[in-house]
Design a binder for these strands. Structure first.
Lengths: 255, 255
DNA sequence: CTTCTTTTAATCAAAGATAAACAAAGACAA
DNA sequence: TTGTCTTTGTTTATCTTTGATTAAAAGAAG
């Protein structure tokens, strides 16, 4: 039997059974366990399977082993980099708003434990910062939106009315050079408009995928947004045109 | 069975059940408890689960800071039984309040998916019922109390002001035959008073350990409480005296 | 707070699995 | 053919995993 054939057979067997022992493969392929081990090492380095003491497990099986917290990995690196930059704009003593976006959630994870008041409509953000002793967390209540675990509706808006903050860190669905930012959900748009109205300064957190998109509901025009933080893949011309509107745009380096 | 397979199985079981004991895993996987402990240590260091005395908790459960395996302790059994009885008083279409107590959290777990509006100041309760499609969840916002993950303060009270509910399920720190119910925390007491004022009927959920205790702040006198649900260990005389005040007391059987 | 029980961590020995070194066999090109 | 390279098997030393035993720690109960 050809070597390549054996490799193929091993991968197939592992995938069929989910897992298999070296001993068994040795018998099935009629080669010594040593050879099987060498095959497995090689196949693992090619990502075809995962090694385990005594045998191998299929990649698929091994992946389902990590079903915990959080699905979104797309753009995660960009979001996380943007979040990091945004966090560096927070000062001791600030009162800030974090919205219910993934980027805000990353921010919540990154914020150091310092004297700070955080107002949010996101349950995930609230949960994340609740462990930090010096941070005071205020949650708008409201109707709980089950998918995003965020609060919306009239109660959320009225809650915001009671406060005033220094900085707002906001995300959106679409960023348009002329028209400003937009949101796909009417309820979310209302909340975001309210947030902008009670904040001194608004930081828009938007990765490159948001640019050029326009969504259902307009949230704000450019003069209302003071800062934009975006990643290195955003079109430089777009960035320049937004700067011409008087917005302070921070573009991160590529990678 | 391959080690990796066992690890997968353990992670899966932990995630399905939220928590699991070493003993059970040992039986299910047919290895000694020692081995399971070593597996758990390893899986914990990989972030796949969280270790706890006697077993393991899924990462998700652990985030909601639930005292692990509390359900298996004596007190928890009472609380769970009381919660079960309380849930049976909920009707399709009801608007109800669940407070931020452990018992309310048990209720949240037990409530079937039916057309219902739940108003709560507990993040844990909100999280728990957020998965149920037919249930509308409204959270009072407010200042987040990190230990209990509940909302308190003026914003929470004002939020409650906007609503009216049919039934309130309430717990407390102390139940006094003459003076009614009390709470150790002033902020919590204010919230609870407000809750009582916007509810048609109040169900007090109190296990036997609460009786005879009197805490700092008075929350309500007897006429305001319409129903009391307690367990079988509560002094029968106490129960009788409370009934004389015109309160409908449901005492569960022992066990 | 103290006692009693359960759970854990540490250590050891045995079984099993692995990696490293080396030799043998086969493939292939000059 | 010869020399080199790859693949495979063999041997041996090493590392991992496991269960058993025991002392210490943590929790529950009174």
């Amino acid at each position: 039997m050809l070597v390549a054939e054996r490799w193929q057979r091993i991968v197939q067997l592992v995938n069929e059974r989910g897992s298999i022992r070296v001993t068994e493969l040795s018998e099935l392929c009629q080669v010594t366990e040593e050879t099987i081990r060498r095959d497995l090492d090689r196949l693992e380095s090619e990502g075809k399977l995962m090694r385990s003491h005594g045998g191998a497990v299929s990649v698929k099986e091994a992946q389902s082993e990590v079903p915990f917290l959080e699905r979104e990995t797309a753009h995660a690196d960009f979001k996380s980099a943007i979040a990091k930059e945004a966090v560096s704009h927070i000062r001791e003593g600030d009162r800030i708003i974090l919205d219910a976006s993934t980027t805000a959630w990353y921010m919540a994870k990154l914020i150091p434990d310092m004297q700070l008041t955080i107002l949010t409509n996101s349950m995930k953000v609230a949960l994340e910062v609740s462990g930090k002793e010096k941070i005071q967390v205020i949650s708008t209540g409201g109707l709980l939106s089950p998918k995003s675990l965020s609060y919306v509706g009239p109660l959320a808006e009225r809650s915001l009315d009671m406060y005033h903050v220094h900085k707002l860190f906001l995300s959106c669905k679409g960023v348009h050079i002329q028209r400003g930012i937009s949101e796909s959900n009417e309820l979310q748009a209302l909340i975001k408009r309210k947030m902008i109205s009670i904040a001194d300064e608004t930081y828009l957190l938007a990765d490159h995928s948001k640019f050029g998109m326009q969504s259902l509901t307009q949230v704000a025009a450019w003069p209302e947004i003071k800062h934009v933080i975006t990643d290195g893949l955003t079109n430089k011309e777009d960035v320049e045109r937004i700067r011409e509107k008087g917005v302070h745009v921070i573009q991160l380096d590529k990678e």
